[in-house]
Amino acid sequence: MLQAVPSIFGVIVISFVLTRALPGDPAVYFAGAMADKESIEQVRQALGLDRSWVEQFFIYVGNLAQGDWGQSLKTGQPVTEELLKRLPASLELTFIGLGLAVLAAVPLGILAATNPGSWVDHICRLLVTAGVSLPTFFTGLFLIYIFYYLLGWSPSPLGRLNILYLSPSHVTGFYIIDSLIAGDLEIFLGALAQLILPTITLGLFALAPIARMTRGAMLGALSSDYVRTARANGLSKSMILLTYAFRNASLPVLTTLGMVFSFLLGANVLVEKVFSWPGIGSFAIEALIASDYAAVQGFVLSMALLFITVNLTIDVILAITDPRVGLEE
């Protein structure tokens, strides 16, 4: 846990400096098109932007320590509130996308590794190449074109729920869970239908590195000495494959998963834009365009926190699976 502290501090510093280094002056933006020099200066003072960077930084850190992430200039709402409202939407997308990718990629990787050169292996290679080479906004638009425009199977790619429905009462913020809690099957199906295309888009993107890693790690494990021993002892195929080979191969795959998650956070921004998803990504883009410092910093910080949490979780899982990991500490 303590290892996370320096990284969080680093993120705070970097996000602060980067937002300040961006071109664009928030004072000019918020003073409006008609503002003269004087009113811009007034806005600047009101925002505290006339002070030195160092001063601004300490004010910012001081506020952070009190749990105050600042206010979004654009909406006038506290940044924390804005982020919390949108975060579940993004997380729902990311987690389901990642889940789909793992469900598809891991078996695919295992099958490809156990039958190298077979048709499964070729499909695996094809999907990996496609996943790496097709950008998410392209797959997103492509899927919309086919399944919404041409076939009409999926609902309009506008947000998390058709406007005809009311969003379920807030419990977790994940619509598919909240709707089930509320016992409203219709909303559940509606939310699910909206989720399918964007999660597949994200999943295809995440699938490539996971499948590749699983295949590689499985190939390594299957040619290892301990699998040879297991075979020499006549252990059953499933035992060799799952208990001996896959459990060992899962270690590098888990590490990759942490990395893939961070890629997904980045890819999210584009996918949300394409599917008009009211998530944290689209919020960040708008904030960035408006030079909305507090919002951008809040976004970067929350992403960093999320990333650190996910990696910590993965480290804990690794330590449980691999008895050797504990040695390092």
């Binding site: 290892s224 000495d225 301990y226 040879r228 021993t229 297991a230 020499a232 208990t243 001996y244 459990r247 060992n248 270690l251 699976t321 691999d322 008895p323 050797r324």
Partner: peptide, 14 residues
């Protein structure tokens, strides 16, 4: 059968 390099020949995480 028993092999050379016994440490590698055993499953490291079992």
């Amino acid at each position: 059968m028993i092999f050379q390099n016994p440490r590698a020949a055993l499953n490291p995480i079992r």
